[in-house]
Design a protein around this nucleic acid. Sequence first.
DNA 1: CAACTAAGTGTATTATACACACTAACAAAA
DNA 2: TTTTGTTAGTGTGTATAATACACTTAGTTG
Lengths: 226, 226
Amino acid sequence: MKKNVTPPLGQSILIAVDTAIFSVIDGALRVLLIRIGSGPYEGKWALPGGLVRMDESLDQAAERILSEKAGVDDIYLEQLFTFGGVDRDVRGRSVSTAYFALVNSDRCLPSTIEYYSDIAWHDTAHLPKMAFDHAKIVSVGVDRLRSKIGYSNIAYGLLPKEFTLTELQTVYEIILGHELDKRNFRKKILDIELVKETGKVRQSGQSRPARLYSFTARKPKTVEVL
Amino acid sequence: MKKNVTPPLGQSILIAVDTAIFSVIDGALRVLLIRIGSGPYEGKWALPGGLVRMDESLDQAAERILSEKAGVDDIYLEQLFTFGGVDRDVRGRSVSTAYFALVNSDRCLPSTIEYYSDIAWHDTAHLPKMAFDHAKIVSVGVDRLRSKIGYSNIAYGLLPKEFTLTELQTVYEIILGHELDKRNFRKKILDIELVKETGKVRQSGQSRPARLYSFTARKPKTVEVL
DNA sequence: CAACTAAGTGTATTATACACACTAACAAAA
DNA sequence: TTTTGTTAGTGTGTATAATACACTTAGTTG
């Protein structure tokens, strides 16, 4: 219940969104970071983010910023947590609603990456010096991903439309941080109908061709996975 | 990354916290609501909430408001979700971080309840006309409680220090919305060492006295429960 | 055609989940 | 003091799910 509609005199709390965009690239779980060019946090890395406008919802702000700063649209996006510590930004009081996004290894934003040295994918296991409380946000995001991959189908956000079961298993292993048994993994994944065969195969190198699969659903869904 | 520290000219988004306080009372999962006395939402019910001050974190704001408006301190409290729809409050743009609190049937705030007709426990299954998006907040809170009771020890927030296993089971049944087998429930609860015997018993009515138990830990903890 | 590489497959064992019904301890009433 | 009523408390067998584990297959390359 809000009795005052006018803000506390003379100042107000800024509301921002910051998004942790994750992808599995080169055998590691990575997050997209931008290097700050000026101000008290110059040289440090931060998540893509920005202030919420008066005429957009939090979700819309997250989508807009994702599009403007990271050049990605139409990807898996969910709210993660809201960080509201008093000292989280030395420049002034702010509250940030963090979002959590997944992109597949296809759309690794190569154009953006090539031309800017101040935007890069960083291994979540070896983060650089980060601004604000963004290291904490990444950490909460990794925890969420790690737990959610076990009871939902969100892995679809990290894979292209078609993939082999070995590729899928590798994604699970990288996120969970430990190896999985090939036969048990395939049995489980197929039992719960997380994926379906496409009928196609893919030849990679000098070995037996692998069957290609796709997710049965590309909408968030909870299922017992691992 | 925030490039502007100054807010959009002439106006700003208000940041509030609203808390859904749950308790199991008279065989139902109930939430504490306050009736709004004036303004466009007059007569509707809302969660206890208020604006975040410049010098307090979100968590501190939630605790302060809980204490001021509901008269409770030192209870289970966790952040639930942040609601940031453009039209959530007809009086102006606001963002609200919702919290989720649990109180045990002991501390049902009887003093507050007796003297005010505009503050009451409502069955979550039969909510009155509610202001803002607070019905949605309650619904998200109930979902969170229902899912979290299955893999954590948060039930401790809903029970007094000492209780019988039947009382504990009843709380689980009310929250989950279905009955549980007595023997399997007790076996599981004791196997995972969620609770321990106190050595005391309690006589209630004309039947065999029940042993009293207490939680092994009164800090949030994840454990496989049901 | 031999050697290499990754794909693909089945079974036995163990642990966990679930279904299910009677006895025990106390109070109150006859 | 015995019977009746009421809730507390307990164990086992069965079904399902989780885990551990090694060889064969289909292709490419030399």
